[in-house]
């Protein structure tokens, strides 16, 4: 059986965790697969107006993060110091730019343009006090059943 649908769950709002759902979602739709991304809890940050390129990456409890100076290991506890999240984010942004990686906002624009269904979880919005007008245009608000109904039609399901 060949799947022609991709159903993705985006549940995190840090920069590094926002990339996989947007990269795979846009690639899926470019491969003519019907695609939906369900944004729940912190994943909603990605959809907030003007937020996509401001998402941060935390060095705390993130031992896989490359070291600023290769070969010199910075103790993880340093990540607790004020400003270290901004430092780590700046470093990561620099690496992404060097590798010519698309910005999150570009991927999000592509997703809207290619008609990826961007579903904002109603319940998470209520919990976190997020209103529809806080989110970019082209988003639909729905619940678990709406996403599962889409996924139930032979979709590949990816959870991030």
């Amino acid at each position: 059986m060949t799947a022609n649908r991709v159903a993705i769950i985006a549940g995190h709002g840090s920069m590094d965790e926002a990339y996989p759902p947007l990269i795979l979602g846009t690639a899926a739709v470019a491969m003519d697969m019907e695609t939906a991304i369900f944004f729940t809890f912190y994943g909603l940050e990605i959809l907030k107006k003007g937020m996509a390129d401001k998402l941060q990456v935390s060095p705390i409890a993130n031992p896989a993060m490359p070291q600023p100076v290769p070969g010199i290991s910075v103790p993880n506890i340093v990540g607790m110091l004020p400003g270290m999240t901004a430092v780590a984010t700046g470093m990561m942004n620099g690496w992404m730019k060097k590798a010519n990686t698309a910005k999150l906002s570009e991927l999000l624009d592509m997703a809207v343009e290619f008609d990826v269904r961007l579903i904002a979880c109603q319940m998470s919005m209520d919990v976190m006090g997020i209103k529809l007008e806080d989110l970019i245009d082209g988003v639909e608000v729905a619940g678990a059943a709406a996403f599962l109904e889409f996924a139930s039609k032979d979709a590949i399901v990816l959870n991030f």
Partner: peptide, 14 residues
């Protein structure tokens, strides 16, 4: 040229 994944695919599709 110069673009990384997934942009070449997205631009090709477009």
């Amino acid at each position: 040229k110069g673009l990384s994944c997934p942009m070449p695919i997205l631009k090709t599709k477009k």
